[in-house]
Design a protein around this nucleic acid. Structure first.
Lengths: 150, 150
DNA sequence: CTAAATTAATTGGCGTACAAACTATTATCG
DNA sequence: CGATAATAGTTTGTACGCCAATTAATTTAG
């Protein structure tokens, strides 16, 4: 009789997975900020360094596939990493269209410092490794779901 | 003898929760894009509308607490929502420092359309409601963890 | 072999996101 | 009461993130 408020509000903010996802993402990235600041890195730049430490050399296209980022996003980001002295940006001699992104000595040395970051984050979160692994799996499933059928 | 590659690479890209979080967040938001486009809304603007549908009227400060966003982010975002005709921005007569954000009739009418979005996203993801609820809980725990001790 | 199509990066535009500086208003305290 | 401090928003600067348009190089096809 009284259509006051629905018992289950489909649009309730605290029920939206997309909202929880964006807050969680921004909040966790915020934890990295003070740890990355000494190296002058932002979190996206840190992810690019992770990709390079693992797969160097990489083209912009390959980096974009790994990080799921636009070339339009990566292009200026890589220039900043170069300005920081962590990477080289040269055209690929085999294919002058492609960029060949490699690490500088400074970029390679940074890896040892970076290895302290993940444990520091885990400690800061105070969550069990198991719970974090479960979350990682759940996120991987969502990511796969977004790449689904349609 | 051969220090080729560590069996467990702490810095492996596909092992980072922060990476999965940012990809998942961007990927899910990407699903909203075509659904929000007819209304001229971005995903952050959509979240602001959710907050207003639930709690109108709101000040910038209150919106910032709900959405975990800077006033510097919200200020221009709200002007765009006003330009779209969905909200009013007036100074609070009780406290001229505060802004009183309210919905226009068009903004209120939009709610009925918006109710179709969450089910469409869930269908598009093709995940069970239970799995999504588990994910939501896990994300809520991470968010709480980032607000932890230190 | 050359014109057309494809591909890889870059550039520019718009909208967040966050920090810092600034303005206006209100509250507090001597 | 009046100077000071605190508060609410706005503005500016930097860096994503995504889209669309552009440029340069390589393929493909005729």
């Amino acid at each position: 009789m009284e259509p006051v408020t629905e018992p289950t509000d489909l649009l309730a903010l605290d029920r939206q997975v997309c909202f929880a996802l964006s807050i969680a993402s921004r909040s966790v990235i915020g934890l990295y900020r003070p740890l990355l600041q000494p190296f002058g890195l932002t979190h996206p730049q840190y992810l690019a360094m992770l990709a390079l430490w693992q797969h160097e050399p990489l083209s912009v296209k390959e980096l974009g596939e790994l990080l799921q980022l636009d070339p339009g996003t990566l292009s200026p980001l890589l220039k900043r990493l170069q300005a920081l002295g962590y990477i080289n940006r040269e055209r690929d001699s085999k294919d002058e269209r492609a960029l060949c992104v490699t690490l500088t000595p400074a970029g390679r040395e940074l890896r040892a410092e970076a290895e302290k970051i993940p444990p520091a984050i885990v400690a800061r979160l105070g969550m069990s490794l198991e719970e974090l692994q479960d979350l990682h799996q759940a996120l991987t499933r969502v990511i796969a779901a977004t790449r689904g059928t349609a």
